[in-house]
Design a protein around this nucleic acid. Structure first.
Lengths: 253, 253
DNA sequence: CGCCCATTTGACAAAGATCAATTACGGTGG
DNA sequence: CCACCGTAATTGATCTTTGTCAAATGGGCG
């Protein structure tokens, strides 16, 4: 899979914090990406965490594999995919990130990023310098613990993905995917039944370990069975219960 | 997959730290599970982290899914598998852990463990209470950062597993598995060519998203091709280069 | 408005799963 | 110490699922 838009020399669209009125303390995403229930004083400290934001056009890479690690990123608006590449040219989408999700945690290990993060629609992220995050976390136990929860959440999410790839057949994979997306949209205040897919069939296929034709056929099958209505990227979930039955296996929590 | 040994009421084999001579500061695993290059004073603080150890017989569970989270565990000796269960009775092995590996990071997110960790041979772990770890980490930046690296390492490892499950065929999966195991044994000072597999074909299959028959056939194929020598659980790597060619795709780092 | 790319759908092939039978270990008890 | 039993592993035959190749259709963007 080649990147649809090639952005040879990346132009950083950095916005200085001073220019923006909105700080962390007033960001409507803070329940998703930063701790809730902090004191006023703590929130002031956390505001110092975000030095700048960055805007990306569809197709632009936030991180490339091999990049030096210095920051993690919180998605404010838009949609990303993260990809790991192999030395023989294959690649594998490991996740789709939307508002409130955190990107870049893979880089902490070796100070190098092992995966690429590309915007699949025009997006904006908060840049969170890691050294600063660790420094502030040392003084705010709730922030420290919340950051650990964020990393743990990523581990659990990947466990679920491993379960999906290791033990589900195509219909179960796609049904799980749709239900998961639906839940994430719902938790962000969007409709849980109507959705516009931000990704192509090929990208869904990569994420689910299937070929694009299989994804397409399975969409058609679900449509014939009255579970969903599909019109290209527009998907309407008609029968959540039926779809859950298709997904069958769900991680017990 | 049922647990081979049923341990109905788990008997905790807790060893008080006072009883053991070996502390973290003198543990030969500390490069794997705790930061290196700390000052004397810091090492003394870290010694206070490990309150006790726990021994497990083969087949005993260290963690069950749904258990309340309070500690993470560092494997001292032995071998573990971690499993996620689905509500329809399937399960999926998400990892094998050996000395120096850390288990239980999935529990931080919701204070509940989402996966089970079972000893697949007689084992011993250090119990690291999370609240204590966070407390000490606040005072030792190097420890704080090292813990983040450990979590990041787990995320990267799972990324690799997703790549394997999502894009490799059976031969590539098994070759990658063997090479990975070989590397991990080597880094622990064991032979990288001779190994005794601690897990069954079915467990390998679960981990690799294959059926046990496929695992067995692929072992036989590699053996016929002169890449390895297999005798049940004893595997000898005869041709690392050839095996690497089979694995083909490797994550670029 | 037209071109390019994404998507859909069909026909066929291949990888791996399933079902089944046989063999080889390893631990236990006589 | 050895025989036995149950489990693990191997191997074969067949079937299912998904991948591959190909062609047609449909949208969206410039």
């Amino acid at each position: 899979m080649k990147s649809p838009q090639k952005s040879p020399v990346e132009k950083f669209s950095v916005i200085k914090a001073e220019q923006l009125k909105t700080a962390c303390s007033s960001c409507n995403l803070r329940e998703l990406c930063l701790p809730i229930g902090l004191s006023e004083g703590d929130m002031v400290k956390i505001d110092q965490l975000i030095q700048n934001r960055r805007s990306l056009k569809k197709g632009e890479s936030l991180i490339r594999q091999g990049d030096h690690f210095s920051s993690v990123y919180a998605v404010r608006v838009g949609f990303f995919k993260t990809i790991v590449n192999t030395d023989d040219g294959r690649d594998q989408i490991t996740g789709f990130q939307m508002s409130g999700d955190v990107i870049g945690l893979d880089g902490i290990q070796t100070d190098l990023h092992t995966c690429e993060a590309m915007a699949i629609e025009d997006s904006e992220v908060c840049v969170i310098p890691m050294d600063r995050l660790e420094e502030i976390a040392r003084n705010i136990p709730a922030l420290q613990h919340h950051f650990h929860k964020i990393m743990s959440r990523e581990i659990v999410r990947e466990n679920e993905q491993i379960l999906l790839l290791g033990s589900m057949r195509s219909e179960e994979r796609l049904a799980s995917f749709l239900l998961n997306l639906s839940n994430r949209l719902k938790s962000r205040g969007f409709s849980q039944s109507e959705m516009i897919l931000r990704m192509t069939r090929e990208e869904i296929g990569s994420y689910l370990g299937l070929k694009l034709e299989t994804v397409s056929r399975t969409f058609s099958k679900f449509s014939e069975e009255g579970l969903i209505s599909v019109q290209q990227k527009a998907v309407l979930i008609l029968d959540t219960k039926g779809l859950s039955l298709k997904a069958k296996a769900t991680l017990i929590e």
